[in-house]
Amino acid sequence: FKMVSRAVGGLVSLVTGGASGLGRATVERLVRNGSRVVMFDLPSSDGEKVAKELGENNCVFCPGDVTSTEDVSAALDVAKSKFGKLDVTVNCAGIGIAVRTYNMHKKKLHPLDQFERVLDVNVCGTFNVIRLSAQMMNQNDISERQEKGVIINTASVAAYEGQIGQAAYSASKGAIVGMTLPIARDLSVCSIRVMTIAPGLFETPLLGSLPEKVKNELGKQAPFPQRLGHPDEYAQLVQTIIENQMLNGEVIRLDGAIRMQP
């Protein structure tokens, strides 16, 4: 058996949540390495601006919501009509809240609609993108490595060590971890691989707005390296997963050995 290297050059990718943070770093790395990308994010995002910077021949922005079948289908149609196919899907879209299950000091319950919203976007939205992407990838001709596509999802270390106030977020990320293997098994007959990355603390817009001192303190929670992760380190792992065919049905923690405290 001779391993054929699969560089990302020439591939067509869909990245959800692609206008900022981990998603944006992924879009930029894929384009830099010769992939053409459909960037999917909310209409209120910087998607249009980011796509212009990267060049319309390399990247096109499709506004929409991951929970909408129509919106995701429209983005996939653009991938097909503009670039001819879909090889890779990276799910970076997600939301989070910080609410206690029951706040005894304020005598306040966790609003159920907020819990449902986080699960709807993070779990149902991710699954919606997976199922529609798989349908399109299955139309691909089999590659030289007998493969039709790769799907990469984003969980979090919160799936394992959720902190106070993270019941909804941890439940949603735990669900993404839990569905990785069964979906990989489901799609194995289509020659499609499915992987999940569980990042630790990364320098994203969510943490980027914090004072430098606070960010440094957060970074020191990781044994080594004692810093926040760089979004391009996430994107680098995305590229590695695309290139290494034996990575399938697994969750990779990308966290500097951090184990979150309560």
Rank of each mutant, 00 (worst) to 15 (best):
T101D: 15
I95H: 02
T89R: 00
T89S: 14
K107Y: 09
F83Q: 00
G174I: 07
D77C: 04
D141Y: 07
V129Y: 01
I164C: 08
A98R: 13
A74K: 13
P63Q: 13
F115I: 11
M136H: 04
A134S: 13
K82F: 02
A158E: 04
E70D: 15
I95M: 12
M136K: 05
P182A: 15
A93N: 09
A134V: 08
G178K: 07
L109A: 11
D113F: 07
I97G: 06
H105E: 15
I164V: 04
G178D: 08
N91L: 04
K173E: 10
E70F: 08
L76F: 00
I97A: 10
A158S: 12
G149L: 06
L86H: 00
A158K: 01
V118K: 08
D87N: 15
Q114S: 12
S73W: 11
Q163C: 03
K80S: 07
R117G: 09
K173F: 02
G149Q: 10
M137P: 03
S133E: 05
D65N: 14
V121F: 06
V157H: 01
G125Q: 06
T101N: 11
A98D: 11
Q135F: 10
V118M: 08
Y102G: 15
M136N: 01
Q166N: 06
G96Y: 05
G94W: 07
Y102T: 14
I142L: 13
K108I: 11
N128F: 01
K80R: 15
P182E: 12
T154R: 03
K108V: 10
F127C: 09
A93I: 05
S170Y: 00
Q139M: 13
V129L: 00
A79S: 04
N140V: 01
D87K: 02
Q146N: 15
M136L: 15
L112V: 14
K148I: 01
V123H: 08
M137I: 11
D113E: 14
P63W: 04
F83G: 01
T180N: 08
A74R: 14
P182T: 10
A158H: 03
Y160K: 09
N122Y: 04
A155R: 01
S172I: 08
A98N: 10
S73N: 11
A167L: 06
S143T: 10
H110E: 12
N103L: 08
V123D: 03
M179F: 12
D71Q: 06
E144L: 11
G64A: 09
N91I: 05
G174E: 05
I142N: 12
P182V: 14
D65P: 02
L86Y: 01
C124S: 12
I95N: 03
L132C: 09
R100K: 13
G94R: 03
K108C: 12
K148P: 04
E144M: 09
Q166F: 03
I130Y: 00
S143I: 05
M104E: 08
T101V: 14
E147K: 02
R117H: 15
S143F: 07
I95P: 00
I164Y: 01
D120N: 12
G64W: 02
A155E: 08
K173Q: 10
K82C: 07
T101H: 12
I95C: 05
F83K: 02
V150S: 01
G96R: 07
S81P: 10
T69M: 06
I176C: 09
L112T: 13
L181Q: 11
S172Y: 09
A79M: 09
L109Y: 13
H105S: 15
